[in-house]
């Protein structure tokens, strides 16, 4: 089965600046795909290609197996990060205008809009002016405009920023529902790693115009955590360090907030070492209190991939699966 999106060795430069330097990535049909990367990494450039705003200088993009063309753009829904609506219009009138631009006939557009307005609790705002909308309300209307034509690919750029937890949950649920009901492929560009872990099946991390990490979230986390363990101990840190010897490397250590006088550490045990044997030999010496495989969170993977200092024992990094 062809990928929903297949980006092959795409390059793009602006006025001497190389925004994308041979980016390749593939998005499976029906997947929720996290497009990650620091500011200025090239994500927006890539999204602009997928929405038909710009074209690659080199390389190719395929859309469900076909070379990406103008006609495919109509099958894409897009919610940009910097969002706006026409201020001089009423809410329903504007939503209807955007829906009709997407190719829907008036009656069908109205039917779908009524459904979405109710679903996202915007009903009652149909005849109000856009300028009366709060930021969150305006975002919901923009989200509706992005999905109203049931696009095959939905691109969401920071879709949850500015939402309170209740409405963020509504949007998350709506995204999952779109995939369930229509098989929509979602490209989610965000810095909110919690959302990535919660929603995304696959990710690609773009840094300085190149893809530095890509794959299924579960697989990436497992690979990144390979050989790493989270160890709880009561021995002095110096004693713990000595006990590791040459077979293991101390990556991080911090006081254990749950056990007074205790510590937790992340260690990497060398390849070929039999972990149960290694552990049994040191358990008493270090005062072992816990031992679990370490699974880095997306945040840690993100920071490591872009070469930033990482606190492996920050709260989000202790998650396991």
């Amino acid at each position: 089965m062809p990928h929903a999106l297949d980006v092959r060795d795409v390059e793009k430069s602006y006025a001497g600046h190389r925004a994308l330097a041979g980016v390749s990535l593939a998005v499976s049909e029906g997947a929720i795909f996290g497009l990650l990367g620091p500011n200025g990494a090239g994500k927006t450039t890539l999204i602009r290609m997928l929405t038909g705003i710009t074209a690659p200088d080199r390389g190719e993009i395929r859309f469900f197996g076909e070379p990406f063309a103008r006609r495919h753009v109509a099958q894409v829904g897009y919610l940009p990060e910097e969002r706006g609506l026409y201020r001089g219009m009423r809410v329903g009138e504007q939503a209807l205008y955007l829906a009709r631009l997407s190719g829907l006939e008036r009656a069908e557009a109205e039917r779908r809009l009524r459904h979405w307005f109710e679903r996202l609790s915007v009903d009652g705002w149909w005849n109000r002016n856009v300028s009366d909308l709060s930021k969150g309300m305006a975002q919901k209307v923009q989200f509706i405009a992005a999905v109203i034509h049931e696009p095959r690919v939905l691109i969401l750029d920071e879709p949850l920023s500015g939402f309170d937890p209740v409405n963020a949950a509504r949007i998350r649920e709506a995204v999952l529902e779109l995939r369930r009901a229509h098989g929509t492929t979602v490209v989610l560009s965000t810095h909110d790693m919690g959302s990535v872990e919660e929603l995304c099946d696959e990710v690609a991390l773009v840094h300085k115009g190149e893809v530095v990490l890509k794959g299924a979230v579960r697989g990436l986390r497992a690979a990144a955590g390979a050989g790493r363990y989270r160890v709880g101990f009561t021995a002095p840190v110096i004693g713990f360090t000595n006990a590791l010897g040459t077979t293991a490397e101390l990556l991080a250590v911090a006081p254990d907030r749950d056990r007074e006088g205790g510590h937790v550490a992340v260690v990497r045990i060398g390849e070929g070492v039999a972990v149960p044997v290694w552990l049994a030999a040191r358990a008493e010496e270090i005062g072992l209190t816990s031992f679990t495989p370490y699974r880095p969170g997306m945040r840690e993977m993100f920071l490591e991939a872009v070469g930033e200092q990482v606190d492996l024992l920050a709260s989000s990094s202790t998650e396991t699966d």
């Binding site: 929405t51 894409v76 910097e82 706006g84 631009l101 923009q142």
Partner: peptide, 17 residues
């Protein structure tokens, strides 16, 4: 300028040339 500055043009350009 309005359409450009509030980025709505980026939304509608997928449906409108």
């Amino acid at each position: 300028i309005e359409e450009k500055s509030n980025r709505i043009v980026e939304v509608i350009v997928r449906a409108v040339r």
